[in-house]
Every structure is written in C-alpha cells, then in structure tokens.
Design a protein around this nucleic acid. Sequence first.
DNA 1: ACAAAAACTGCAAAATCATGCATTAGTAGG
DNA 2: CCTACTAATGCATGATTTTGCAGTTTTTGT
Lengths: 277, 277
Amino acid sequence: MILQFLWLFLISNKIFDIFVMNFNFYKNMLKAERHKYIMTKLIEDQKVVTTDLALALDLSEDTIRRDLNELDSKKLLEKVYGGAVQVKEKSDNVFDIAIVAEEQKKKIVTKALSLLHDDQVIIMSGGSTNLVFAKLIPADLKATIYTYSLPIAMQLSQHPNIDLIFIGGKMQKNAMVTIGMDVIQVVSKIKADICFIGASSINIKQGLTEVGYEISIVKKAMIEASDRVVSMFASNKLNTKMPHGVCDLTQLDTIVTELDPEDERLDEYRKSGVFIL
Amino acid sequence: MILQFLWLFLISNKIFDIFVMNFNFYKNMLKAERHKYIMTKLIEDQKVVTTDLALALDLSEDTIRRDLNELDSKKLLEKVYGGAVQVKEKSDNVFDIAIVAEEQKKKIVTKALSLLHDDQVIIMSGGSTNLVFAKLIPADLKATIYTYSLPIAMQLSQHPNIDLIFIGGKMQKNAMVTIGMDVIQVVSKIKADICFIGASSINIKQGLTEVGYEISIVKKAMIEASDRVVSMFASNKLNTKMPHGVCDLTQLDTIVTELDPEDERLDEYRKSGVFIL
DNA sequence: ACAAAAACTGCAAAATCATGCATTAGTAGG
DNA sequence: CCTACTAATGCATGATTTTGCAGTTTTTGT
C-alpha cells in the first residue's frame, strides 16, 4: 500500500517537473518572441485568454495586456474583454464590392430607369454605375439581359423576371469582366434593343474612350449590336480622355449624368445631337 | 509522508480541474467567441432560442439576452420573443453567400488541396463546397481554371496566378450557374487534367445523381472532358438519390468527405474501386 | 382575462482593465 | 567604472465590464 503511494508520488513528482519546465520554459523570453508565441497560439486556438497567457509565460497579466494592446494597435489581433480574438478578415469576403459615391450613382441611374420596358433585350457592360443600375431595376420588369460582368450577373440573378445570359470568356480579374474573342463573338450575334455602357472617359472630339484596349473592342461590338446606346457616368468623367477609342458622340443615343440636363457643362454635348437625360 | 499526500491532493485537484474544464467546455468562453458561436448557430438553424443557448453555453438567460440585444443593435440579427432570427433584407447585399457548415466543408476541401499542381487545367462545377475549395486554393498555384459558377468565379478572380475562364450561357438564377447548350459546347471542347464536381447525392447503385436535368447534363460533359474526376461532399450525401443520373461510381476517380478514409460508412464505395481521400 | 414564459431593470459581486509609480535590467556615454 | 537614460515589468488603486439574481413588467397562449 505504502509502495503504491510512493510510486504515485514519484510519478506525480515527474509530472510536477514537467509542469515546472513548462511554466518556466519561457522565462527569459524577449518581447518579440512573446508576441510571436501569442500570435501562434491565437491561430491555433482562434483566441487567447489573458490569464492563461500570464500563467503559461509566467508573467503578470498586466504585461500580457500591454502586449495584447500593442498587437491590437498593430491590427494583428483584436483585443476583447478577457483576452483577444483573431482580427476578422475584412476583405476576405470577395463579395462585398465597395461602390464609391453610391448616392450620386443612384441619382444617375434612377433617371435611366425610364428607358426600361418589358420584353426588351438589353446588354449591360461592367462598372460600378451599371451595378447600381442593376440593383435598382424594378422587380416586375420582364426582360432579357446579356452581361459579361460578374458582379452585375450576381446582382441580376436575384431578379425574378429577368432572363439572364452571361457572356463567357477569359476573365479580366481586376474588373471582374470577361474579355477577348469569345466575348466579341457572342456579342456580335446579339440583336439588342438597348445597351448600357459605363464610361471611363468622354469628350467632345473623341467621344467615348477606354483605358483598356480589350474593353474598348468589346464595347464597340456592344454598340454595333444595339439599336439604342445609353451611357451613364458622373460629370467628372466629362472632358477626359483615355488611350483607346470606343465610339464618337454621334453613335451615342443618350447620356445620363447627375447634372440637370440643361446644365451648361453639357451644352456642347447637347449640340452634338445626343439626348441628355 | 504528509507532504506526499498533500501533493497527491494537489495533483488530483489539477486533474479534477481538467475534467471540469472539459465538461464545461464553453465555460471560459470570451464574449466575442460567444457572439461568434451565436451567429454561426443562427446561420445553421435560421434561428436561436434563448433558453437553448443558455443551456448550451452554461450561462444565465440574462446574459444570453444581453448578447442578443447587443447583436441586434449591431443589426447582425433580429431579436424576437424567445430568441432571435436572421436579419432579413439580404437583397441589399446579394454578394454575401451564407455557407452552411463551413467548418466541415473546410475540413473536406483541405484534404483535396493535395490534388492540385502547377500547370493543371481544371474544371470546377458550382456548389458551396467548391466555393470553399476555391477560397483555400493556395495563392502561389499557377493553373487554368474553367468554371460556370458566378460565386466561384468571383472568388477565383482574387487569385493572382490563375487563368480564369468563365463558361457563359443562360443563368440558372438560384444556383448562380450557367446552364444549357452553350455551356455543353464549351465544356466538351476542354481537355482538362482534373475536374471537381459537387454532388447533390451519391449512392452505390446509381452513382452521382442530380436534382436538375440541365445540371446533370453539364456534369456529364465535365466528366467526359477530364482525365481525372474528383467529387467532394459531406457524408450526409452518402446513400441518397436524385432523379437525374450523372455517372456511376466507376467513372469517379476520387471522392472526398469529412470522414476518415477507413470509415465503415465508405466500405462499399471503397470496394467499387474509387479512391477515397 | 389569466397564468406562464420571457424580458427588462436595478443592483451587487467578481473579473478585468487602465493608470501611475517604483523597481529592475540593459545600454550608451563620459 | 560610474552615471544617466530608457524600456520593460510588476504592483496598487480606482474605474469599467461582465454576470447572475431578485423583483417587476411585458408578451404569449388559452
């Protein structure tokens, strides 16, 4: 009986040693090492607890808290009451697309809603203005829409009454649109009533111009395929220029900006014959 | 001697503590973790019940209520009498796709990452499991990926080293994938090294089966176009059946589930010759 | 309308945190 | 070697946050 206890005692002593080793293992740790340890622990467990760390590293909780505050201010973790958790990946979600000046764009596209009618065949290019437009298309509109923009297709796929056709091809990843010959081929076979073209730049002489060559080609094909061509953009795009031409003003039927149609900044465009909404 | 017993007592206390810790697994949960747990639970079950949460987390109902109020004021959920429900009006943001049992799916697809190599040509079908897979594809993988799923294309468009080709066609809006002859035509011309097929249902006799006819046709074409066919799914899909056949087990090269490859539930599948990861 | 369940309010105990201050260790310069 | 300086750490103190409980109010179902 005694022997059993003695044995247990020895065993427990061993365990105790291990404990002590673990406790004091990190005793002479530099601050940087500690931070690394904390970050590793955080990734392992999804969280760290102040008291646990103080125990594990044999330091006062105050020091741990200071560490956590420091790491928090570096945005490496998020401090919470009792410890810290992983900083939530803000842009991990590819799917939330930030739209700059969304209110302004809403104002623009709302005007263009009057151009929509049931049973139209519509082509939409990419761009955040067109995305806002897609959001605001009335739920009861019945139409066929072609697009080659992923975000716009995502948006329109929520729409109950729209026949949606995505134009496939090689993805231009930053703009999230397809480009290339496959796109041109499909677009050139469409007979659309109306197309909505985002604009990088517009001016009197060159008309619509684009920053990318491939996009400019696709837009040319869109215009060719549509009876009516509408371009929506904010007024800061007026009188600017990009390397690749898309079409001149005579090929545009309607432009839509946030300005009053009678605004003097649009005078020259109005003279060229394009309808201003 | 007394000391020995004292020591034993301390040790047993420690062991006891560990037991208690395991028993009350969530006892030392940080508030932030709790909120995360609640939100996960909410997405899984579409609702949470105050009393259930109090029981599950071993906390008073008051605390749970305070949590729910807090999350409610952050607009992350909507508190109702007895618990909380998901905040509606998700039409505001089409783009955040809720993935049920994301952790389980991560476990599955992580196994499949070993099948990826540089310079492969890959076809990916739709489905949330494949979406999780797309998220976890290493940033340094250089490959060409074909897909006809909007969310997967969105996800992969963030990937710097992947040539991404979207297969266009008519959109099946609820699944956010393209379907139809256009898709078949493109797929049948691809010569892919490997394809990853989501599964609605799988069983020994019929193999892969699908709920939609069109999808089943597309998947047939995918299999035809690929040297190697991989299907990833959770084990609850095992031994279920849908109306439209895709392929039998002999046409599958690899299946991946969250189960251990030696699990007895996979015995019959293993016998059929398919490799189980 | 009434009883039971759920929710809210105020309160107190406990845990956690921020701050100021003293101590220590390491370091650079004379 | 000594001194002054700085950074890091621990401790004391008071503030803040969290949590459960008791009592009251609101909601729900019958």
